[in-house]
Nucleic acid binder design. Structure first.
Lengths: 328, 328
DNA sequence: ATGAAAGCGCTAACAG
DNA sequence: CTGTTAGCGCTTTCAT
């Protein structure tokens, strides 16, 4: 490996001068600057980032915590975060946490030992006390972790309301809800939105709300039970697309036609919903945008640690596809 | 940040001694060792990995290059690699290359400046000369880059043969193939397997092979053309599942029933193929296993730089689902 | 068994 | 405008 010393020797200057032209700061005669640049080229010198990091106490790395990258909601988020961080010269570290607090804490520690510059976190388990001794910026993404932490989310409750209203507008008379895990802020908000709309309907039964755990197979299973026990249900608002597809499979396995007998609307707007038959009507999040925004926000906070905490909420948008249909 | 110096002071020893207990090497009196450990605990000391990396010239980081994590084949691979690297104390860096050589070279450089320990690379564009001055181990994954580079792949040609034979065994009389990009070794092998089986059939036409570019929309489009121009086709072997789902969509849009009129078999075995209706018959790769194996192999080579290059090939397995059916 | 000190490669005062 | 030097926090000879 060629070092700054080699360059200095080759250009017959001091390492300080080389460092100055490298970082383009401080005064340096344009002639010597050229000479140094030539030496850098000739020696094909690349500064050692580890040495820089040691000095600066920052590594130009950013980490994204997701429960599981295999869940199809997260790749787009990850892609967005990587694009932005990369564009700003940061290295992107991906951590699968399985929503286990031990893994999360382990990552938090390990990465701080590497002088990581900040975290973007999707989590249902981390709370304030877990991060009180984290001394780099954190952005909560998709789910809110704590009131005084910056966050980027969508209007889940409003979206839940709109989805449910949409089913009503289609003429659905019995609308059920497949919810996600209890401890995730996003899914509880979606359920609230659903309840806002149906809780005063005379037909509403608490058994119309069942938990699918953000999981394809689980959702399929609970949907089968739901539809068996409540054959009158003609509309389902499912808390995310992955479960929505599971719900469609469930209906099909029961010989219930979607959308003729049953309308299904879900939430997220992942590509998966476009590939199924029928394709899935959904409340689409601007997934890429919220990931990108979280990354930008984090980088802003990394560059100015005094920045106030900020919380941004994006809007979801109804995307009508084939799994919903006007009742006749 | 508390440093090794603080611990040394607190335990009334030298930093060298603290370092010894930290790394569990060299002689150190068990009494003082205990004292040091207590100090470490009390001060809640965590060694600075950047300083370690600077000294060692290694960072305990491993990078995975994928074309695009949003392609549903890659999350499982990424998950596998992350699991293994994490288990061995490595930090996992994810890079989306879009199969663009400039991005790949930029990443290669940037990460070496960070003293990265090794690369796992899925690429169709990198060749030998691009990596000749990379001085850390590289494992090619999914696609072969160069003969003298370690690699982990599947038996693509054999798999292509089996898929095509399977369609024949079902009674398909005109079998087409949707292939991937020309420059990727995996997809050309799959096509070879297909050709092995059909090239001597008297019905075989070169127009039965069309390229879908490993892309959902493109595959859908070319399949529509294929089926319009060649309505006699009653079986398609598609080079991957993503395109396979596109092909199913295409058939449906044309009113061609799958599997009654047309059997479709694809390749990869990603979860997506289970969620569609009909679900997709496929030659399933052990995706997680090859990712995990590549990571293990890389770590072996990181730990012993003299290890010989190794190339491992896993087997694909026919998974019969609903998109194929015996001709009647 | 322990400590002193050099050095990993770089940056940023401080001098001149 | 340029050079000298002191670290950043750690590991590892080399003494003792």
């Amino acid at each position: 490996m060629t070092t700054i010393k080699d360059v200095a020797k080759h250009a017959e200057v001091s390492v300080a001068t080389v460092s100055r032209v490298l970082n383009n700061n401080g005064y340096v005669n344009s002639a010597t600057k050229e000479r140094v640049k030539r030496s850098i080229d000739q020696l094909n010198y690349r500064p050692n980032d580890v040495a820089r990091s040691l000095f600066k106490g920052r590594s130009k790395m950013i980490a994204l915590f997701v429960p599981d990258i295999m869940n199809p909601y997260f790749p787009e988020l990850a892609r967005a975060v990587e694009d932005v961080t990369n564009r700003h010269g940061y290295t992107f570290v991906l951590c699968n946490t399985d929503d286990e607090i031990e893994k999360e804490l382990t990552y938090l520690n390990a990465l701080q030992q590497k002088s990581i510059d900040g975290f973007i976190i999707v989590s249902s388990t981390i709370t304030e006390e877990h991060i009180e001794n984290v001394n780099v910026p954190i952005i909560a993404l998709d789910r809110i972790l704590s009131a005084n932490l910056s966050s980027v989310t969508v209007n889940n409750r409003e979206g839940g309301r709109e989805a449910t209203e949409y089913l009503k507008s289609l003429g659905c008379l019995r609308i059920a809800h497949i919810s996600g895990p209890e401890n995730a802020s996003n899914t509880t908000e979606r359920m609230r939105g659903y309840l806002d709309v149906v809780k005063n309907e005379d037909w509403f039964l608490s058994s119309y709300v069942v938990s699918g755990g953000y999981n394809f197979d689980k959702a399929k299973e609970v949907t089968i039970n739901l539809l068996k026990n409540n054959p009158e249900v003609d509309g389902i608002f499912v808390a995310n697309d992955l479960m929505g597809v599971g719900a469609m499979k469930a209906a099909q396995s029961l010989g219930i036609r979607v959308p003729e007998d049953l309308s299904i609307i879900a939430f997220d707007g992942i590509t998966l919903g476009e590939t199924t038959s029928p394709s899935l009507t959904t409340m689409a999040q601007p997934i890429y945008d919220i990931g990108a925004r979280a990354a930008e926000m984090l980088i802003e906070q990394v560059n100015d640690r005094e920045l106030p905490r900020k919380t941004e909420e994006f809007s979801v948008k109804l995307v009508e596809r084939q799994s919903t249909k006007v009742r006749s």
